[in-house]
Simulated assay, not measured.
Amino acid sequence: MHTMWKGSISFGLVNIPIKLHAATENKDIKLRQLHEECKSPIQYKKRCPVCEREVENEEIVKAYEYAKNKFVVLDEEDLETLKKEQEDKAVEILDFVKLEEIDPIYFERSYYMSPTEGGSKAYGLLRQALKDTNKIGVAKIIIRSKEQLAIIRVYENTLLMETIHFPDEVRQVQNVANVPEETELSKKELSTAVTLIDQLTEEFDPEKYKDEYRSALLDLIEAKKNNEEITTAKEKPKPDNVTDLMEALEKSLEKTKGTKKKTTKPKTPAKSKTKTKKKTS
């Protein structure tokens, strides 16, 4: 498994060097967006609306918007220093609690913990102690530049770390609209509902549940492949120097139209003609 964090966990004077590995994976089927006309993948570019041009990654800085269009710019060096100061600290288990005391709404992501060199005995010690006491550890850890609250528990034969939300990250249930305070129910209605729940109650078996939509979507994709209902994106046309030159010249001509002032020749004064009268004898 890929190591996504390396450090140490401590409780009391016991220090355990460990690695974290993602315990779950997202198996959603990712669909690309194509231009319907030519079936080419759509690109998304970073663009500055003020400068009206595409922006490169090295031109981008991070900032915190403390008011509308008011920002505090944070240097990358400052962020890295702050991150390193926190990551270099050993992750200390702050408290031990019972798992059932934490509501599932707090749980976020799960990570397997494995001991690194010299940490096997301490790892086994914590694992057995958690099993014997039926407790879990509560700790703090920095993952991907964010401080996380986490719990450490035993899963099968492995120590598992689960990041959990801080209390202020869980929205107040009182803000949910249209939740009835009390509902008038007859004894028969409630008795029937309880009986139905009892009839459908059984031991939880995760293998029983399948992602039927994902399976159906994969079957549909495979069927279209087999029927050769496929498309190939058109290659981006290579620039033609001659065409580009002509286009540039034509655009230049368009820009220069109407920019030159028309010059008119000055009118020359008309010569006066004198008529001579013939003498009569």
Rank of each mutant, 00 (worst) to 15 (best):
E85M: 15
E25P: 00
R53K: 13
I141C: 08
K261C: 03
I197Q: 04
K278V: 07
G12I: 05
L82R: 00
D103E: 09
A233T: 13
K68Y: 06
T201G: 03
E147N: 14
S8D: 00
H165R: 10
R32Q: 13
L245K: 06
L82V: 12
P266D: 08
V194T: 01
A177M: 11
P167C: 05
D240Y: 06
K68W: 00
H21L: 11
I9F: 13
K251A: 08
G118K: 09
L185M: 06
K121E: 08
L218A: 15
D132V: 02
I16V: 10
W5H: 08
V138D: 12
H35G: 01
N241W: 04
Q148D: 01
L220F: 14
V154L: 03
N57I: 06
K84I: 08
Q86W: 14
I105P: 02
V242D: 10
K251D: 05
T133A: 15
F204E: 01
K224Y: 13
V173E: 13
K225N: 05
T259R: 15
G137S: 05
D88F: 10
K46I: 06
T116F: 04
D244M: 15
S281Y: 10
G258E: 00
E229W: 04
L249G: 07
L99A: 14
R171F: 05
E65H: 05
L185I: 04
L82T: 09
P269W: 11
K121S: 05
E87W: 09
I143K: 08
E169F: 11
I93H: 06
R32N: 14
K262D: 07
K135M: 15
Y123L: 06
T259Y: 07
I105D: 01
C38N: 10
E54Q: 11
E77R: 13
A67E: 14
E52I: 07
L126S: 04
K68H: 09
L74H: 00
P269M: 09
H35L: 13
D198C: 07
Y64Q: 01
A63K: 02
Q128G: 04
L160C: 02
A270L: 15
S145M: 08
D78Y: 08
G124A: 06
T192K: 12
T201A: 10
R214I: 00
L126K: 02
P17H: 09
K257E: 14
K257C: 01
Q172A: 12
R144C: 06
K251I: 02
V61T: 09
I142S: 08
K46P: 07
L79M: 14
V73K: 15
I221W: 04
D244I: 09
L74Q: 07
Y111P: 06
K121A: 10
K70R: 14
V73M: 11
T3E: 14
I60Q: 03
I136A: 02
V173Y: 00
V173G: 13
I105H: 03
S110W: 03
K279Y: 11
F96D: 10
F71Y: 15
Q128I: 03
I9A: 07
E80M: 03
E212C: 01
K188P: 02
K210M: 07
D168H: 15
S281P: 14
S186T: 09
I151E: 04
Q148H: 12
E247R: 09
E25S: 08
I230D: 03
E37A: 15
I105W: 03
P104D: 06
Q33T: 13
E108K: 08
I141T: 07
S145D: 15
T276N: 03
A23D: 02
K131M: 13
A63L: 05
F204C: 03
A22Y: 05
R53E: 12
E92A: 11
